[in-house]
Design a binder for these strands. Structure first.
Lengths: 163, 163
DNA sequence: CGTGAATGGTTGAAGCCTCAAGTCAGCACG
DNA sequence: CGTGCTGACTTGAGGCTTCAACCATTCACG
């Protein structure tokens, strides 16, 4: 495969880019799986479910509208809707019609949901620390933040979320 | 939430770590979704299916045993087995019993499968370049490689893959 | 040799996500 | 008012992944 980069022949990744990409591909595949495994084993939650509860727990009144919450958890509205039904059945959150705008649904974290987050967070934080931060110097941590923001800017330009 | 770090009270993430983690969490959630979308739209393949075909295409004789291929594609053996059946139905790969070890199945990329990779790679590479490398300086690219390898070392210590 | 353990892979069921379609509320305009 | 349009969300079907159970083969070791 050439590296000339003509019009219909795309610029291939050079060796360095290729290795970097394989490494990143491994991370984006395996890291979510590892976090899901820890949460599933210790709390019976998927990473997405945990994100939903955790994001809600940091909101004023532990409340957010569905579409906003979907963005915070980096998922589609449809996905959130399905997950919200399951979490509601388990008593971790409640959905209420918004009095100001009849189209809007507000998701509210229940006391049981808040307790679940409090019980689950330490193990999850420990996993994140072990899998990500323990292997990095503080300089690398700063670099990672910048790099992550840059990539996120490309992947998700308007900060919201497709669905 | 305190930051004392006693025995049963875990060390919480400080503000900087927390922001870094939210950024990385966004990347590991949204980047695979974006790549899946491009591949699905332009080639009718999932990112995992593409990885399977692409990894095979770079092997001598375009052949690998199933468990080895699962590791290369960062998936479980079960997942690969299901995917291999679908790819086989589409004529992109074939499975043969290994003559040397009756337990082993070898996956072989067919000519149609190789052609599919050749046809699909340019668009995929362009997506990776746009989503990842276009936003980074060459220094950041080098940093990303190191950081990715470090994290991968924690997530996947023995280089193989859970299944 | 022969038996038990370990390895490599496949399968079926159950659950989750995506996609497209549908519902209902607000808004604009005649 | 009422007609059409957009926005917010829900729902159902279909496909993919996971999990556990299973089958076949090889290896270890009396």
């Amino acid at each position: 495969m050439s590296t000339t980069g003509s019009a219909d022949e795309p610029r291939w990744l050079d060796d360095d880019e290729r290795t970097t990409w394989l490494s990143l591909a491994g991370v984006v595949t395996l890291l979510p799986a590892a976090l899901d495994a820890q949460l599933q084993r210790d709390a019976g939650l998927s990473h997405f479910e945990y994100m939903v509860l955790a994001m809600l727990s940091e909101r004023p009144s532990r409340t957010a509208r569905m579409s906003e919450l979907a963005g915070l958890a980096h998922g589609s509205l449809s996905r959130l809707s399905h997950v919200a039904r399951r979490l509601e059945e388990q008593g971790f959150l409640a959905r209420r019609a918004c009095p100001e705008d009849g189209r809007v649904t507000n998701a509210v974290l229940t006391d049981a949901g808040y307790a679940k987050v409090v019980a689950t967070a330490p193990g999850h934080v420990a996993a994140v620390r072990h899998l990500v931060f323990d292997a990095l110097t503080s300089a690398q941590r700063r670099q990672l933040r910048t790099i992550g923001d840059r990539i996120l800017g490309q992947v998700n330009p308007d900060g919201s979320c497709a669905g």
